[in-house]
């Protein structure tokens, strides 16, 4: 039941990314609902759920917006390894700060990847607009959206889950 609800929420997020997010732009950037949904799954759902959610959301978003599925997958791919790297204690940050860093870095990479994909597909390269119109406003939107989603869940008592995968489950590494 929980998996169904999470799946429906991810589907809605991906559809909302194409049907709703463009209605609320900041400069040339739009809120990345897919990223917010994936961040919540990574932080509160756990590693196995996140491993499934990333390709599902990427494919759903790509089909709904007629973008390249491979590019959409590559766009959101760094989120989970990056979140794990931050959680592993390499960077002295609390969990909320780790979440923000992972979200912002992945959001910037996703926007960059999708813009570079458009350029490779024939759009004129405009690095100035890419930075000032997409990456900077996108960073602010990601910070705002992730904060607005994370803090209420924590206030409701939902605990973040560890991203360490139990050794016995996979039996290697």
């Amino acid at each position: 039941m929980k998996a169904l609800l999470v799946g429906a929420a991810l589907l809605l997020a991906a559809l909302g990314q194409t049907a709703v997010a463009p209605l609320f732009p900041l400069s040339a950037a739009v809120p990345d609902l897919c990223l917010v949904a994936l961040v919540l799954v990574v932080v509160f759902g756990g590693p196995r759920e996140a491993m499934v959610a990333v390709p599902v959301v990427a494919l759903t978003f790509a089909f709904a917006s007629n973008r390249s599925p491979a590019l959409a997958l590559l766009a959101y791919l760094p989120l989970l390894p990056l979140a794990y790297y931050l959680e592993d204690g390499r960077v002295p940050l609390n969990r909320f700060a780790q979440t923000l860093v992972a979200a912002v870095a992945t959001g910037a990479w996703a926007r960059l990847a999708l813009a570079l994909g458009a350029m490779a597909d024939g759009a004129a390269p405009q690095p100035g607009i890419l930075v000032a119109g997409i990456l900077v406003p996108g960073l602010m939107l990601d910070l705002l959206m992730v904060t607005m989603a994370y803090l209420p869940l924590r206030a409701l008592g939902v605990e973040p889950r560890a991203l360490e995968i139990p050794r016995s489950r996979y039996g290697w590494s």
């Binding site: 049907a19 463009p22 007629n66 759009a123």
Partner: peptide, 13 residues
């Protein structure tokens, strides 16, 4: 139905 709009793309369905 929807609009996919960014600095480099402007597509509607």
């Amino acid at each position: 139905v929807h609009r996919d709009s960014s600095a480099f793309t402007d597509v509607i369905s």
